[in-house]
Simulated assay, not measured.
Amino acid sequence: MTGQYNSEIDLGFARLDVDRAERTGDPEVVFGGVKTPGQVVTALRTLHQAHPDLPVLATRLTDETIALCRRELPGVQVDAVGRTAVLGAARPAHGRVAVVCAGTADLPVVRECAVTVAAFGSRPETIADVGVAGIHRLLAQRDRIASCDVVVAVAGMEAALPSVLGGLVGAPIIAVPTSVGYGWHMDGLTAWLAMLNSCAPGVLTVNVDNGFGAGVAAARIARRMGG
């Protein structure tokens, strides 16, 4: 594309795509995992200036980056568990996303997902510690989960949660395998393969620990369905 879709801001260490919100409805997101704390703060501040009416998001932040964001960015909302930072006012929420996890060990991925869902314009409802080892807990939440437009199912170990949910609710299910488990779970590969091979229809799978990717997809689906 040329013309109206080629505006960028060159920060030296990164070129920010400030037209992305016009093309997709969502601003560019800062991946903080390979950036210095100062670079993350600069990128967030610049994106916020370019999109003053939308929240801008940074993910995979180190403790040092989180501390600097709190010092340098007034009004920033930090989630230390999910390692995220959001700068800017919340946007109107359309639709609802159930972010369901098997165990509390999955909470970093859950929090990354829930923050992303909110930043991308839907309302997350977190339902934690409902893994199949205590399936009565999941069944007790079935109606609440089924009332949402999209379900994100986060699980490690043998990753049975998405398949079970696929037989309980009719909403689209986005499965997120996590690198959590006893013994040799191969950094989440076991969970990923289990989710890819789910026997339940309507289950889609993202990469290991990718709460961000699941959150973006879920929010975009939910806000279309939620009006």
Score class of each variant (00 low, 15 high):
L54N: 01
L44G: 02
L57Y: 05
M1R: 14
A218N: 11
L189S: 08
M1C: 09
E72K: 14
G202L: 07
V86A: 09
L161N: 13
A21R: 12
L68H: 03
F13V: 13
V203A: 02
L139F: 15
S122L: 08
T178Q: 11
V164I: 15
R223H: 04
C113L: 10
G215M: 06
V99D: 05
G213F: 01
F212P: 00
M1A: 13
I221A: 15
G215N: 02
C148N: 14
A58I: 04
S179K: 11
C101W: 00
R223Q: 08
P201S: 11
G156Y: 03
S179D: 15
G215Q: 06
V154F: 03
C101Q: 05
I66Q: 14
P162V: 04
E8W: 12
M225N: 03
A21T: 07
H94S: 11
A171K: 10
G121I: 00
V81Q: 06
D53Y: 02
G188L: 05
V56M: 01
G3R: 08
Q77D: 07
A133H: 15
A89P: 03
G121F: 01
V176C: 06
I145G: 12
R224S: 07
A191H: 13
G167H: 12
V40S: 13
A90V: 00
R15Y: 05
M186S: 10
V86C: 01
F212H: 07
